[in-house]
């Protein structure tokens, strides 16, 4: 039994072995890009919107409204980042219904990569919003004693994100493999439906948590008691 698609080598490209995680990631990327390209190629103000364009607008505006509800600050860069996170994870999990497709999110390497990207994005958005000094100062709040705890908290966020996403997707795959051995003609359908549901929920949770982390870094902190006294 292979738990991670990283161990499945599909073919070699210029001598470099390509595993299933990378291949299916590219499939997802190609799918999202082509669908976006097809829908938005005739997107002009003089052309009335069709149902596909309206669907995309609903998705994009839904993501934007969710981000604005959490961060209270409309930001297109945050939309690009968090929206891509959500669409990638959601599409990967939805394509689970395609026979033979292995979602890249069931690889710990993929979830680790996404968690690392969030880990890097949080200080980048924080520095962009509050400046280097302002962002680093957040590690000293509410006092200098909290510095190691804030650093641990920062890393534990990324680790928890990665483990949560991986665990959910992988557990679904593991349970499917086990149950296939028990009742091969009944459980796959139910598990596929369950996988779709948990996949969408995980994509939503992952994107929401990333937004919360980034918003925490970009939102000005409340003044401490010492700052209030000095004012």
């Amino acid at each position: 039994m292979t738990l991670s698609p990283d161990q499945t080598i599909l073919f070699e490209l210029w001598g470099i072995p390509l595993n299933a995680t990378l291949f299916y990631t590219w499939v997802v990327m190609a799918f999202l890009t082509i669908v976006s390209l097809l829908i938005t190629r005739n997107l002009r103000p003089d052309v009335p919107p069709n149902r596909w364009r309206t669907t995309l607008e609903v998705i994009v505006q839904g993501i934007q409204s969710q981000i604005e509800e959490i961060s209270r600050r409309p930001s297109r860069h945050l939309l690009y980042y968090v929206g891509t996170l959500f669409l990638f994870v959601a599409t990967s999990n939805l394509l689970l219904v395609v026979p033979g497709f292995e979602p890249p999110t069931s690889s710990l390497s993929t979830t680790t990569a996404l968690a690392l990207s969030v880990l890097i994005a949080v200080p980048m958005f924080g520095v962009n919003s509050r400046g280097v000094g302002g962002y680093l100062k957040t590690y000293l709040e509410p006092s200098v004693i909290m510095l190691p705890f804030n650093i641990i908290s920062e890393f534990s966020r990324g680790i928890s994100l990665a483990i949560r996403l991986y665990g959910n997707i992988m557990s679904g795959a593991v349970i499917a493999v086990i149950l296939l051995g028990v009742a091969p003609f009944f459980f796959p359908v139910v598990l596929d439906l369950l996988g779709l549901l948990t996949g969408m929920i995980q994509a939503y949770i992952f994107a929401i948590l990333a937004t919360v982390y980034i918003s925490t870094a970009t939102t000005p902190s409340r003044p401490t008691q010492t700052q209030k006294d000095s004012q």
């Binding site: 990327m29 999202l32 390209l37 938005t40 995309l56 929206g83 390497s109 993929t110 996404l114 990207s117």
Partner: peptide, 23 residues
């Protein structure tokens, strides 16, 4: 694979920004 996935994700961000979000 982690490094490749980070690169893939950044490329996907750019692609979706170019072909989805902006239009």
């Amino acid at each position: 694979t982690v490094a490749a996935q980070i690169a893939n994700f950044l490329v996907l961000v750019w692609l979706l920004k170019r072909f989805l979000y902006r239009p």
